[in-house]
Computed example of a mutant assay.
Amino acid sequence: MESGLNFIDLILKASLLVQLVMLTLVGMSIASWAIIFQRKGIIGRAVIDAREFEKKFWSGMDLSKLYGELSTKVTQATGLEAMFIAGFKEFARHKKSSTPSAGMVIEGTHRSMRVALSREVEKLESGLSFLATVGSISPYIGLFGTVWGIMNAFIALGEVKQATLQMVAPGIAEALIATAMGLFAAIPAVIAYNRFAKNVEVAETQYVNFMEEFSNILHRQAANTAEAK
């Protein structure tokens, strides 16, 4: 037994405002899925690159040689590489000057790496605010379409003398589709946001730990240089 209500027909016969709500939710859903796939690749790549760089960094390779190798790369350095380059570049600049103490050298390098850290975290967090927005407002947009559709259905129902369920059912059904679309847009966005936010937090912790360890290494080198002078 086939139902008299067709999903596509309900959307096409819906009021203009409800159709605009549905179109908005579809657009938000498509945009959020595009960001989800993009962020998944970027954040996943950042985690892998960080692990590979840490292996190279702790392999005992000379820091000057590592800096030269990274500086001549065609692609722009990101993640820990960008932080290392920023820190070592500042360290080398202070080392060549007549800086009075190792503390001032490390203060400058630490500041440079902190700026690089902020930039890298900002790159990883790009788009997450949109996912949070979609996750928070999509159900309300869908609910607005539902309320409007049900209101129109009952207004039309009040204009007839003999009301039947068959007369009001299409209007209520098309209105409920808006709520379903709102949930369809919101749920993946919320799940993705929570997952990516956690991954970015883990990556940021890894970056901060590296920054502190690298600062300690540079501090020892600066102290040894100062004593040698």
Rank of each mutant, 00 (worst) to 15 (best):
S3I: 04
F7L: 14
I8F: 07
I11A: 01
I11Q: 12
V18S: 07
Q19L: 02
L20E: 09
V21H: 04
M22P: 01
L25I: 13
G27D: 12
M28V: 06
S29W: 03
S32R: 09
S32C: 07
W33T: 04
A34C: 15
I35K: 08
I36M: 14
I36A: 08
I36T: 13
F37T: 13
Q38A: 14
Q38G: 07
R39I: 12
K40W: 15
G41Y: 05
G41T: 15
I42M: 10
I43S: 00
I43Y: 03
R51M: 05
E52Y: 03
F57Y: 15
S59M: 02
M61H: 05
S64A: 03
S64L: 01
S64G: 13
Y67E: 05
G68M: 07
E69Y: 06
S71C: 05
V74N: 05
T78Q: 00
A82N: 14
A82C: 10
A82W: 03
M83F: 06
M83P: 07
I85P: 10
E90V: 15
R93S: 09
H94E: 14
S98H: 12
S98D: 06
T99A: 02
P100D: 02
G103M: 07
M104V: 13
V105M: 11
I106H: 09
E107M: 13
H110K: 00
R111Y: 15
R111M: 10
R111N: 10
S112W: 03
L117P: 05
L117V: 11
S118G: 07
S118T: 07
V121A: 02
V121P: 01
K123N: 08
L124C: 11
L124W: 00
L124N: 01
L128I: 14
S129G: 10
L131H: 02
A132W: 03
T133V: 10
V134L: 11
G135I: 10
S136D: 02
S136M: 10
S138A: 15
S138M: 04
P139D: 12
G145H: 10
G145R: 14
V147C: 00
G149V: 05
A153L: 00
A153W: 12
L157E: 07
K161F: 06
T164M: 00
T164I: 12
Q166W: 02
V168L: 12
P170D: 09
I172W: 01
A173R: 08
A175V: 05
L176T: 12
A178R: 02
M181I: 10
G182V: 12
L183N: 03
L183R: 03
A186F: 06
A186K: 01
I187L: 04
I187Y: 01
P188G: 00
P188D: 08
N194R: 01
N194D: 02
A197D: 07
V200T: 08
V202R: 06
E204S: 12
E204G: 11
Y207R: 11
N209S: 03
M211A: 12
M211I: 15
F214P: 09
S215A: 02
I217V: 14
H219L: 11
Q221K: 02
A222V: 04
A223I: 09
T225I: 14
A226G: 02
